Every structure is written in C-alpha cells, then in structure tokens.
Computed example of a mutant assay.
Amino acid sequence: MNKGYIQVYTGNGKGKTTAAIGLGVRAAGYKRQVYMVQFLKNTPTGELDSLKLLEPYFKLFRFQKTKGFFWNLNDEEKKILKAEVQETYDFIVKVMREGSCEVLILDEILGAYKNELITEEQIIYLIDIKPIEMELILTGRNAPEWLVNKADLVTEMKDIKHYAEKGIMARKGIEY
C-alpha cells in the first residue's frame, strides 16, 4: 500500500471486532501482513482458531492474563492489568517502529482508554508514529471526539434491536 489510513469502529452495537477482522481477512487474502492486538480479551473465542488458519499473514496477539471484566476487578488486579496493557502498548510501539505489518488492528483499545489503562497521549503517539503505508484500525465503544477528528474513517455500530434485551446470552461461535 502506498498510503495507509486510520479507521475507527465504535458504537454500542455489535460487530466492531468482526468488522476489523473482516478487513484483516481481506488484506491477508492479498498476502498482506496483518497484526491484530487485542486489549481486555483473554478468554477463548472462535476467532482464535479461525485466524490461526490464516497464518502467517494474519497474526493475533494477546497480552492480558488478568481474568474478568474491569468493573469486577479489585485494586490489585487492576494494577496488574494496567501493567499488562503497558506491555501490550510497548509491543505496538515496537511493531510500528519496525513496520512489522501492513495492517495493524488495535481491538478494544478504546475500552482500555475508557478504563484509564492507556492515555490519550499514548494513543495519539501511536497515530503520530504510524508508518505512512500502514493501515491502522482502532475498535471499541465511545470513540472520543479527538480520535474521531484524527481518523480518516469512522464507523459507528448502533444498536437498533438486540436479542440480549430478551435475556439471550452471548452464544459460542456467534458472539465469541
């Protein structure tokens, strides 16, 4: 690619990660190197096994070992999680400096930002050091205005109707 852009998939609706993976699958189909780094995710999901089939072109990275939703963690667990997120961030900086991939997906980075595990300044730094030819995709709810202004493409997933409202829990192979 001559020029890569900054894309954001945000909103309360379902499909942010799925959209980012779809873009990555398309790029991998053209033998472009795709890295997906997931924040705040550490449980088994269907995409883990599926994306292994696309290696070496599509690689998924997870650094978080702390289990549970952020709001259920105690102070010590949150401290550990923050260190894990910093390890993730350091890896991303290295990937960007080395130009290790053509497409870089930062899945749920906005969740890490919302929970104050990563700062606005850190995200802006990533945008600033992005190699010109790298496509950068950020996902998560509630994209802040400063990120919307910096992005080249912003898609908002909006709930209109969701079966969770009827008490239907997340289903293996569909939601995870």
Rank of each mutant, 00 (worst) to 15 (best):
M96P: 01
K130G: 06
E156F: 05
E87W: 00
E77G: 01
P131Q: 05
I127K: 01
L104V: 10
Y113S: 06
I132M: 07
M134E: 00
N149G: 07
P144K: 11
I118V: 15
L81I: 11
W146K: 09
E84V: 08
I124G: 03
I132C: 03
Y113V: 09
E120W: 02
N149R: 15
L126T: 05
A143M: 10
E133V: 08
I92N: 00
K94G: 04
D152R: 05
G140K: 10
A112D: 10
M96E: 03
T119C: 05
I124Q: 13
E108H: 02
L126E: 03
E120C: 06
L117K: 13
I123W: 00
K158M: 04
L117Q: 12
K78M: 04
L136M: 14
L126V: 05
V148D: 08
G111A: 14
R141H: 10
S100H: 04
A151H: 11
I137H: 01
A143F: 12
E102F: 00
Q86C: 08
A151R: 14
G99N: 11
K130M: 06
E135P: 14
C101V: 09
Q86N: 15
R141K: 14
D152S: 12
V93I: 15
S100R: 12
V95P: 03
V93P: 03
G140H: 10
D75Q: 13
L138D: 03
E108D: 08
A112I: 09
K150Y: 12
K78Q: 06
L138Q: 03
Y113F: 14
E156G: 07
L81N: 09
K130Y: 06
E121T: 14
N115D: 13
W146V: 10
T139M: 00
T88G: 02
I123L: 05
I127A: 02
L147R: 02
V85G: 03
K114Q: 14
D152I: 07
N149A: 14
K130I: 09
T155V: 15
L138G: 04
D90Q: 15
M157A: 08
L104A: 07
E102A: 00
I137Q: 02
A143I: 15
E116A: 13
I124D: 10
W146C: 10
M157H: 09
S100V: 04
E121V: 10
A143E: 09
N149W: 09
A83L: 13
M157Y: 04
S100G: 05
L117S: 10
E98L: 15
E145C: 00
E108F: 01
E76Q: 13
M134A: 00
L106W: 05
L110Y: 10
R97S: 08
L110T: 14
V148Q: 15
I129P: 12
K130A: 08
G140D: 11
L138H: 01
A112F: 07
E116L: 15
L136K: 04
L110S: 15
V103N: 03
M96D: 01
G111C: 05
I105H: 08
I137L: 06
I127S: 01
A112G: 11
E77M: 05
P131N: 07
E156D: 11
G99L: 09
D107G: 02
K158I: 14
